[in-house]
Amino acid sequence: MTLATLSDVLQPALAGRYAVAGLVTLGWEDMRAFVAAAEATGCPVILQAGPSCRAHTPLPVLGKMFRHLAENASVPVVAHLDHGYTFDECREALEAGFTSLMYDGSRAPLAQNIEETARIVEMAHAAGISCEGEIGFVGYADGESSAGTNPDEAAQFARETRVDAMAISVGNVHLQQDKQGGLDENRINAIQSLTDVPLVIHGGSGVPVAQRTALARGTNICKFNIGTELRMAFGDAMRTAVNADAARFDRVSILKETHDPMVAATCSVLAGMGHGVSEA
C-alpha cells in the first residue's frame, strides 16, 4: 500500500528540490491515467478532488476510488481534498479516507482565515493526516481577480496555523488555458525568506513549463496544481475517439481510448516537476 499524506511527499520534495504534481481529477478515467503516469515515471502523485469533482461524485465514493488506486500503486499516492470551503466538508473528507485536506479561507480577512484554517489543521493532525491552507486569493481567468500574497502575512499564517503546505498568490490564475504568464519570483523569494513551509501554486497550468521546473529546483515551491492542461488533453482525446466512428455509442469503448493519450500528457507534466534532480 502506498497511500501517503501530503507531508509524506512534500517534505522529501522540499529537501530534494523538486515538486509534486497535484492533479485535479474529474472521474475514474483521468485518475487512473494519472496513477499510471506516476508509476511510469517513478513520481509520487497527489490525486485532488475539487469542487466540480465533488459536485459530480460524492466524497465517500471518491475516497474509496483514491484509496483503491493508492493501495495498488507502486508510488506514493495522496488522496487530497482541494478547495474545501467548510469545516464540515473537510471533516467529511477525513471520514471518507482522504489523507490530506486543503481548506480555502483565502477570501476571508487574515484573522478569520488563520482561525478557521488552524481549526482544520488541528483536526487533520489529530487524525494523522495533512492540511494545506491558502493565503492570498488566487483568481480565475475571465473571473475574479487575484489578491497577491503579502509575505509578512504569509509568515504569520504559516506560524499560527501550522499548515503542512501553503498555497500562495504570486501571479498564478485558475483555469488559464495558455502559458503566456509567469510567476512573480521576487514575491516568492520574499515569502520563502520568512517561512520554510512547503509552498503550493494553484493554477499551475498557466505557468510556463521552464519556469515550473526552475522554481521546483530552486525554491520552496513543492507542489504545482495542474487541472486545465490535462482537462484539455482529455477533451482532445475524447473528441478524437467520438469522431472516429459516428455510429459508436458504447461509452466504455470510447473512454478506453482516452487512457493512453492522458497517460502521455500526464507524463509530460510530471517531467516538468524536476523530480529527483537536486540543484547541485
Rank of each mutant, 00 (worst) to 15 (best):
Met1Phe: 05
Thr2Leu: 03
Thr5Val: 01
Leu6Tyr: 01
Ser7Phe: 02
Ala15Trp: 02
Ala19Leu: 03
Glu29Leu: 03
Glu29Ile: 07
Glu29Pro: 00
Met31Lys: 03
Arg32Gly: 03
Val35His: 05
Ala36Pro: 00
Ala37Gln: 09
Gly42Thr: 12
Cys43Met: 11
Ala49Tyr: 05
Arg54His: 03
Ala55Asn: 11
Leu59Trp: 08
Pro60Leu: 11
Pro60Thr: 08
Met65Asp: 02
Val78Ala: 11
His80Thr: 08
Leu81Lys: 03
Thr86Gln: 14
Arg91Ala: 15
Arg91Gln: 15
Tyr103His: 13
Gly105Asp: 05
Ser106Met: 09
Ser106Cys: 07
Pro109Glu: 11
Leu110Pro: 01
Asn113Gln: 07
Ile120Cys: 08
Ala124Arg: 12
Gly128Glu: 01
Ser130Asn: 06
Gly133Cys: 02
Gly136Asp: 01
Ala141Cys: 11
Gly143Phe: 13
Ser145Arg: 14
Glu153Asp: 13
Glu160Pro: 05
Glu160Thr: 01
Thr161Ala: 04
Arg162Tyr: 01
Val163Met: 11
Val163Trp: 09
Asp164Val: 01
Ala167Ser: 04
Ile168Thr: 05
Ser169Thr: 06
Gln177Ile: 12
Gly181Pro: 07
Gly182Thr: 05
Leu183His: 06
Leu183Cys: 08
Glu185Arg: 14
Ile188Gln: 07
Ala190Asp: 09
Gln192Pro: 00
Asp196Met: 00
Val200Tyr: 03
Val200Ala: 02
His202Met: 05
Val209Trp: 14
Ala210Cys: 07
Gln211Ile: 02
Arg212Asn: 00
Ala214Cys: 05
Arg217Leu: 15
Ile226Ala: 04
Gly227Asn: 10
Arg231Leu: 07
Gly235Arg: 14
Ala237Ile: 07
Arg239Trp: 04
Val242His: 06
Ala244Lys: 11
Ala246Asn: 12
Ala246Lys: 12
Ala247Leu: 14
Val252Cys: 14
Leu255Met: 15
Glu257Trp: 05
Asp260Cys: 01
Met262Lys: 09
Cys267Met: 15
Val269Ser: 06
Ala271Asp: 14
Gly272Leu: 10
Met273Asn: 10
Gly274Lys: 11
His275Met: 10
Gly276Pro: 10
Val277His: 14
Glu279Lys: 02
Ala280Arg: 13
